[in-house]
């Protein structure tokens, strides 16, 4: 048997999703964004929703998410993605409307829009990347930065007495009646990727079925910002991030 016998359709076990564009990604090697983008592309493709999908990109590392997925996108002002998504879904109730936001975008500057949209129970999905740091601007402290964690604006480590505690915004959101799904996932192992994908699909189904607001938090690595290798970052996330941001469903109705 030579290689040509092996490369055949029936032997295909993995392929790049059709909705991922053929462009180089700007994300750092080891960053979680690429995996999450791929999962979103797979889910939209599997649900057959390319012509109904409208993604809302944030300001932050994912500001150019629109370059990577072959769907219609809107690029929001910093923190305002849930406001855009609110209007899009209200005006186009048959569409799949999702936002893709980082921790600074969703839990600092956009806290108001996030909580109010979720409290109204807008029928949107929110994909929330929590890596505890501002990646795009060069590693500053985020609302989700851990206690004692060093960043470029907390060089001695986050001091909770002056900067407050890590904001567990998903716990807050899970309390709101408008929220139907609040789940915390990760993408650092194959099993975790599978679970995260299931939850992204559920969130998108909730949007299409008008069940309310779904938030899928992905506890993520930022190895560049954390100044670690990708594998060190994965280990550090498990040891330090997961105790503060434990994985699992906070709400799933």
């Amino acid at each position: 048997m030579d290689a040509n016998n092996i490369i055949s359709p029936e032997n295909l076990v993995y392929a790049k999703p059709l909705l991922m564009n053929e462009v180089p990604m700007h994300y750092c090697p080891g960053c979680s964004h690429g995996v999450v983008h791929k999962l979103i592309a797979e889910v939209i493709q599997e649900m057959g929703l390319q012509d109904k999908s409208i993604g809302i990109a944030p300001v932050g590392c994912a500001v150019m998410a629109y370059k990577y997925l072959d769907i219609d996108w809107q690029e929001a002002a910093h923190g305002r993605a849930p406001a855009l998504a609110t209007a899009v879904k209200r005006l186009c109730p048959d569409k799949l409307v999702f936002t893709y936001q980082g921790d600074g975008d969703l839990a600092a500057i956009g806290t108001g829009e996030t909580i109010q949209a979720a409290n109204r129970g807008e029928n949107i999905a929110i994909i929330f990347i929590n890596n505890g740091i501002y990646g795009m601007t060069g590693g500053q402290m985020a609302p989700t930065t851990l206690n004692q964690m060093k960043t470029s604006t907390s060089p001695e480590g986050r001091d909770v007495h002056t900067s407050g505690n890590p904001l567990k915004i998903l716990d807050l959101l899970a309390l709101l009646d408008g929220v139907c799904l609040a789940t915390r996932q990760s993408v650092h192992t194959a099993a975790a990727v599978k679970r995260a994908k299931r939850m992204i699909r559920l969130a998108f189904e909730n949007s299409m079925n008008n069940k309310g607001t779904s938030i899928v938090e992905i506890v993520s690595t930022c190895n560049s910002g954390w100044k670690m290798t990708p594998t060190e970052a994965n280990d550090w996330m498990v040891e330090n991030m997961f105790p503060v941001y434990p994985l699992g469903d906070l709400k799933n109705i």
């Binding site: 929001a76 406001a83 899009v88 005006l91 108001g112």
Partner: peptide
């Protein structure tokens, strides 16, 4: 027609941005 009381003027104008991006009269 959709009529929505937003949580702030900042949210209002960004809702307008979302709706206008869909080609709607907003």
């Amino acid at each position: 027609m959709v009529v929505l009381q937003a949580e702030s003027e900042i949210a209002s104008i960004n809702m307008v941005y979302g709706g206008a991006s869909c080609g709607k009269y907003v």
